[in-house]
Every structure is written in structure tokens, then in C-alpha cells.
């Protein structure tokens, strides 16, 4: 390189370009990670196929796939926005990635916006893939797309808040363990593949307040039963979103 190569010419790139570049990088990191793909793609797809084909749990009246698909979509949102994001962000914090980006021209809020975009892009992939599989299994969805979209977005906000809260406060290894454990517990107890009414009555009222239960119940109301707008479930998700994102904003540690 010749003389004058390094002559200072500083300046931040335009914000939209920075956010787009960051979101693209975050998405590539997500899709390149084998464990993440297992969690976000393979497990939901496998559960959908397995439980539709084999009568393991009593899913009530109607086709199993009509009961299962809304729950699996909720699981897909949780796997990306909560589990995947918590683990990835936890390790980025541990390895100084968040710290290094903190000294770059990219503002912190723009980094978080890019992370959210990456989560949404991944969710679009998931929803497309799972929808194709569900249709192949004979799924016949009811209801309109708008309440579904609203549920998915609020669910993403609620899970992102909780995932970032975990990633920004716990050690990376603790986040890894806890995020996987929570994923497993909510998979079983959140109305994803096992209907909530299989649980004792006292447990049902508590489990129904979980974000995963609100999301799968809301999606099921619309997609299986053709309900208009499940305001109760949307309300629960909104409260989780406000609490989770608020706590994450307050307690998140960048290093």
C-alpha cells in the first residue's frame, strides 16, 4: 500500500446502510450456527411431522395437524427470538463482540434494531418452511392473516425482551443452560404440543399466563377455530413485552 493510504478520512456510514449490514451479518451468523439451526428449524419441523403422523398425545377433536401447527409456529418464534437470541447474544457479550461494536460508528440502539431484523428474517424462513410442511400434512387454517401477524410480532417482542434480559445479565454458559432448559419446559408446559387442558386446573391458570401459552393459544384460536382477534392473549404478550424489554433495557450489561 502506498503513502497516503491511511490518511485519515473518518466518518460513519449512513444509518440505514449500517443497520442493513449489521442485520445481514447477524442473520448469516444465525443461519451458519449448527446448534441454532437444530433449535430453530429441525426440532419444530420434526415435532410437527412426528406428532401429526403418530398419535402420541390426544390433541382433541379435529385433525392433529390443525391443533399442532399453531403451537409449532409459536415454538418457532420462541426458539429464534428467545432461545437462539439469548445464547448468541450471551456469547457475543462474553467474546467482546458487543464491546467492540460499541466502539464502532453503529449506535447501540441500531445494533439492537439489526438484531431484531435478523430475528424477523429468520422467523420468515421458519414460518414459510413450517407452513409448507403443514400444508403437506393436510393443514386447513382458518381466520385472517392480520391477527396472526400481530400475535407473531408481539410474541417476538416478548421473547426478545426475555432473551436479551438473560443474555445481558447472566454468564454465557448460564444463559446457554438456562435458555435450553426454559425452551424444553415451555415446549412441554406451554400448550405447544400438549393441550393445556391436560394439566390440573390450578396449573392451567398459571401456565396460561406464560408467553408461549398465550402465543400458541392465540394462534390456535385464530388458525384452528377462526376467531377474530384474541385480545386476551395479545394483552398477555404485550405485558410480557413491556416487562421484558423494559428490564433488558435497564439491566443489560454490554461487557
Amino acid at each position: 500500500m502506498s503513502a497516503g493510504t491511511y490518511t485519515p478520512r473518518p466518518g460513519a456510514a449512513p444509518l440505514p446502510r449500517m443497520i442493513a449490514a449489521q442485520a445481514a451479518l447477524e442473520t448469516r451468523m444465525l443461519l451458519r450456527n449448527g446448534e441454532q439451526l437444530l433449535l430453530t428449524v429441525i426440532i419444530p419441523a420434526l415435532l410437527l411431522v412426528l406428532f401429526s403422523a403418530v398419535d402420541v398425545v390426544d390433541t382433541g377433536a379435529g385433525e392433529p395437524v390443525d391443533f399442532l401447527t399453531p403451537g409449532i409456529l409459536a415454538l418457532a418464534v420462541m426458539s429464534t427470538a428467545f432461545t437462539g437470541q439469548a445464547i448468541a447474544t450471551g456469547f457475543e457479550r462474553r467474546y467482546g463482540v458487543l464491546k467492540r461494536l460499541g466502539a464502532s460508528p453503529l449506535p447501540r440502539w441500531a445494533l439492537m434494531a439489526a438484531k431484531t431484523l435478523a430475528v424477523l428474517v429468520t422467523e420468515v424462513f421458519q414460518v414459510v418452511l413450517l407452513t409448507v410442511i403443514a400444508f403437506a400434512l393436510g393443514w386447513s387454517p382458518q381466520g385472517g392473516p392480520l391477527p396472526v401477524l400481530l400475535l407473531l410480532v408481539l410474541g417476538t417482542a416478548a421473547f426478545s425482551g426475555l432473551g436479551l434480559l438473560m443474555a445481558g445479565t447472566l454468564k454465557a454458559e448460564a444463559t446457554l443452560a438456562a435458555a435450553n432448559l426454559v425452551f424444553l419446559l415451555l415446549l412441554v408446559g406451554g400448550g405447544v404440543v400438549v393441550p393445556l387442558d391436560k394439566f390440573p386446573e390450578a396449573a392451567q391458570s398459571v401456565l396460561g399466563l406464560l408467553p408461549i401459552a398465550a402465543l400458541s393459544d392465540g394462534l390456535r384460536d385464530v388458525l384452528q377455530h377462526g376467531a377474530a382477534t384474541p385480545w386476551g392473549d395479545l394483552g398477555i404478550l404485550a405485558v410480557w413485552a413491556v416487562l421484558g424489554l423494559g428490564a433488558a433495557a435497564k439491566f443489560f450489561r454490554w461487557e
Binding site: R9, P10, M18, A21, Q22, L25, M29, Y95, V97, K99
Partner: peptide, 24 residues
Amino acid sequence: GGVYSGARAVEMLTHMAKLHAHPL
């Protein structure tokens, strides 16, 4: 540290360049 463990060397450097207006 400071780099995504799954990012390739040139990929990360290209990304940092994109955050600037007149990169090398």
C-alpha cells in the same frame, strides 16, 4: 476478542468497513 466466533476473517473486516463512510 471482539469478533463473532462464527464470522470469517474477511467477512468481519468487510463488515467493519461497511460501518464507515470512506473505508480502506
